[in-house]
Every structure is written in C-alpha cells, then in structure tokens.
C-alpha cells in the first residue's frame, strides 16, 4: 500500500520535472524566434561589422541554438541565471528583490483571500438556496465580470483621491510601522483578492454541494449529526481534492498575472520586471522570469495534486 503511494507521488514529481523541461525548451525557443539581432541592438546603429561579430562570438550567439539551450539550462540548474543584456547586471540580482516583493504581495493576498473565499464557499453551500447563498453567488459573478483595472482604478479614485485614506502608489518605502505596512498593501491585496476569490468561492461551493448530496451525508444526518459536524467531518474531507486545485490555480495567478495591478499601483514586482525586459529585448531576463512563473505554477499544482492524493484513502 505504501510503496503504491510512493510510486504515485514519485510519478507526480517526475511529471512535474518533465513539464518543467518541456517548458524551458519552449521558452528558449520562443525567445530565439523574436525578431532582431541582440548584438546589433546592444551596439547600436553605428557599430562596425567587426565589433558586432566580436560581440556575437563573445556571447556564444554563433553556436547552434541547441547548444546554447543546454548552456542556458545548465546555468539555470546551477543557479546561474546569466547576465542581463540591458545593463550587464547578474539576473539573479535583478530578480532577487523583485521576486521577494512579488512573493510578499502574493502571500498577503493568499492569507487574506483564501480563508474568506473558503468560508464564503462552504457557508453558501451549507445554506444552499437561501438569500445568503444567492447574495454570495450574485456577488461572485459580479466580481468575475468586472475587470481588475476597473477595480484598481476605482479603488485609487475612492480611497486615495477622494477619501485620502490610502496611498495611491505602493512603492515599498521604508516601512516603520505595521499600520504603514497595511496601508501600503491594502489596495493591491484588495484588488487581487477580488480577482482570485471568485473562482475559489465558486469551486468550493460546487465541491461542497456535491459532497452534501451524497448518501453518506444523508446517513450522517440520520445519525443525528449537526450541520457543522456533517460539513466538517463528512463533506469537506471528500471535497478537498477539487478545492485545493481551485486554490492552487487561483494562487498561481498571483505571480505571473498581476502585471495590471503592479502597473497601476507602481508595485515593484516580477511581472512588471518581465514586461520591462520585453521592451528592452533583454532575452535572458525574459527567459528567467518565464521559468520562475512556470516553476511556481507547477509547484502549486503539484502540491494540490499531492494533497488530493493524500486526502483520498482509495489512492493512499
């Protein structure tokens, strides 16, 4: 039984690693077919052909693409992300600070939105058909339909411009108090929560409603179990798989998909860094950012998968 479980989990991890490899290939390939020659771009219009050729060979640009792919992959594996074309700084250094702020924002949003979303999803499933359930469902659909730039802009307009409660920009200045921290994070966290909660609420509600319709829940009710006991002991453990998957999918959005929020609040995160890299044609930086997004995504999905496996005694 246990070896079965281990092989199941090992299989998941192998699949994740393989996916990562395939993605790295695609990311590398995609950046290769971007138009323009890096050496020419870097040296400018006045460069002599000799200078361009020299730079090309110095950057290994003349090697076959497949060779460069493996150089790059080897570098990634050993932690060497390469050097930025645009300003010659090590990419690890460029990304480091940005990744930290992005993770901070993501963590704050997750801490804020996941408990609320789960609570709303579970309670609306328990009170299915009531006014409360309909209010929650309507609200989630409304929230899904409003684009995030709209929420963010409206937030800035109301809380920063009219009420002047919160700063409109979230540049991580020197934060000296907890209150200051909350003021800085409030609006981006709030906006992002709007975006990611809706999906989690809907999936949680659907999974719990499905579990509540099963004969074993009816059986629990006929044993005299209270509503709380039915949901916590019987429905939730069986609804865990779909719920953690919905949560993982929503959270994965927090790293790569937040460019609009980061731009509006001028938050120095990694998504903004990647967009800047595209405009300066900084290929190593683009590749590294793409790989980080993919890695985090896979990490979350694989974790969700593993939790789902562990929560199911038939697979365990």
């Amino acid at each position: 039984m246990n070896t079965h479980l281990l092989s199941l989990l090992g299989g998941r991890l192998l699949v994740a690693l393989f996916t990562l490899f395939v993605v790295s290939f695609v990311v590398f390939g995609a950046t290769q077919i971007l138009p323009g020659d890096v050496a020419e771009v870097l040296l400018g219009q006045a460069a002599t052909p000799e200078a361009v050729a020299g730079l090309r060979s110095a950057m290994h640009l003349d090697d076959p693409a497949i060779l460069r792919f493996f150089y790059w992959l080897g570098g990634l594996a050993t932690g060497d992300l390469g050097t930025s074309y645009a300003n010659n700084m090590p990419i690890a250094q460029l990304i480091g600070g940005r990744l930290k702020s992005s993770l901070q924002l993501a963590a704050a949003t997750a801490l804020f939105s996941v408990p609320i979303a789960l609570a709303l999803g579970i309670t609306s499933a328990m009170l299915r058909g009531t006014l409360y359930d309909r209010a929650v469902t309507t609200a989630t659909i409304t929230v899904i339909s409003v684009p995030e730039f709209m929420v963010a802009t409206a937030g800035v307009l109301i809380f920063a411009v009219w009420l002047k409660w919160l700063p409109s920009l979230s540049i991580a200045r020197n934060v000296d108090s907890f209150g200051e921290l909350i003021r800085i994070y409030a609006m981006p966290v709030f906006t992002l929560s709007f975006v990611i909660s809706a999906q989690m609420i809907r999936m949680t509600r659907a999974a719990v409603v499905e579990a509540l319709n099963t004969p074993y829940v009816e059986m629990a009710r006929l044993k005299g179990a209270s509503r709380t006991r039915i949901v916590l002991r019987h429905a939730l453990p069986n609804a865990l798989g779909p719920i953690v998957n919905a949560v993982a999918l929503s959270l994965s959005y927090l790293l790569g998909g937040v460019i609009i929020v980061e731009t509006i609040f001028n938050y120095p995160g990694i998504a903004k860094l990647m967009v800047d890299a595209v405009s300066t044609r900084d290929l190593p930086l683009i590749q590294s950012c793409a790989m980080i997004f993919c890695f985090v995504y896979l990490l979350l999905i694989t974790t969700a998968d593993i939790i789902a496996i562990l929560s199911n005694p038939k697979l365990r």
């Binding site: 074993y216 059986m219 006929l222 044993k223 005299g224 069986n238 038939k314």
Partner: peptide, 22 residues
C-alpha cells in the same frame, strides 16, 4: 436530531454509498 441515531436508527439501502469513503 437528538432522536435520530439514539432512539430511531437507519440501515441504508446501499451501504457502499452510505459509508464516507474518507
């Protein structure tokens, strides 16, 4: 709910479905 299970108990049609798989 106080009567259910303690005074009147129920044996379901399909035990396979009435047991919580988890």
């Amino acid at each position: 709910t106080r009567v259910r299970g303690s005074e009147v108990a129920y044996v379901p049609q399909s035990a396979a479905a009435a047991f919580n798989p988890a």
